[in-house]
């Protein structure tokens, strides 16, 4: 079975701050990381591979990412964490892609890899949209389950999954091919293995372009993106307010006063 994991390289958000004077992004010592949710997606893919192996079904886990050439580093990191192969979608034509154009390109890769099962993180911590995974399922015509917190059963044909909703868990039976977006609760990712590190060092990571995927150039990158960012600015700065210290009972009395001004108790 072919299992594909879509990952995104994102900045380590702790480095992203707004300079209050210049109103610009301050990104000292910019470091990249694999989007945290995608690590859970990758781990779950590797676990599914292991579970299927126990049923006598062979499978491979391929990680796919779209971005500039430096995303190669994120893909190699994924190889240390249990992925068997990696593919980089990188092309000048992809620049400026919004979630529509990103899901269009990733869906083509997913289809080219003949994926039976695709994993994505619930959302990326830079864009926070949660749209790309679901978008892929329309382009590639896959079933979708979002916010997956547990895979009860998995076979070559179907999966039974738990989805974390606002007020509980929904248990669904999903026919493959399908795409799952996962939440943090689903697992605890493993640490890199020595074998994985060796593999990552020597791996050949192919670079796929819009042309090699036979994509419509009108649907790629900025040109293919229906949305346009017209302004980026800093949110209203939240400054620390009043502060009290002292006797707990007095603190509690002051706190109660503040609470009662805001909610009826």
């Amino acid at each position: 079975m072919n299992i594909v994991v879509c990952i995104k390289q994102v900045p380590q958000t702790t480095n992203v701050k707004i300079d209050p004077v210049t109103n610009t992004l301050v990104r000292e010592g910019v470091e990249s990381q694999i989007n945290p949710f995608d690590l859970y997606a990758l781990e779950e893919a590797v676990r599914v591979k292991e579970r299927l192996a126990a049923q006598g079904v062979e499978s491979t886990v391929t990680v796919v990412s779209m971005g500039p050439p430096q995303v190669d580093a994120a893909l190699r990191e994924a190889l240390t964490l249990g992925a068997d192969a990696a593919v980089l979608l990188s092309d000048r034509a992809f620049a400026g892609s919004d979630t529509w154009a990103t899901s269009y390109a990733l869906a083509a890769a997913v289809s080219a890899l003949k994926a039976d099962l695709v994993f994505c993180g619930m959302q990326a911590i830079d864009g926070d949209t949660a749209q790309t995974g679901p978008g892929i399922t329309v382009h590639a015509e896959y079933a979708l389950a979002t916010y997956v917190s547990k895979i009860d059963e998995i076979s070559e044909k179907r999966a039974t999954v738990h989805r974390l909703l606002e007020d509980g868990y929904e248990v669904c039976d999903v026919a493959l091919p399908a795409l799952f977006t996962v939440v943090k609760e689903i697992n605890e990712p493993r640490t890199p293995s020595l074998r994985g590190k060796m593999r990552a060092k020597s791996a050949q990571i192919p670079v796929w372009t819009a042309a090699s995927l036979q994509l419509d150039p009108e649907r790629c990158g900025l040109k293919g993106s229906p949305t346009q960012v017209v302004k980026v600015f800093s949110p209203e700065h939240r400054a620390g307010g009043e502060r009290w210290e002292g006797d707990p009972t007095e603190l509690a009395a002051k706190l109660l006063e503040i609470v009662r001004e805001r909610v009826t108790v």
Binding site: V229, K231, F233, P235
Partner: peptide
């Protein structure tokens, strides 16, 4: 975006 560190205005 960026966990609330940045605001973006978007058009379609």
């Amino acid at each position: 975006a960026f966990g609330g560190n940045i605001m973006a205005t978007i058009l379609c």
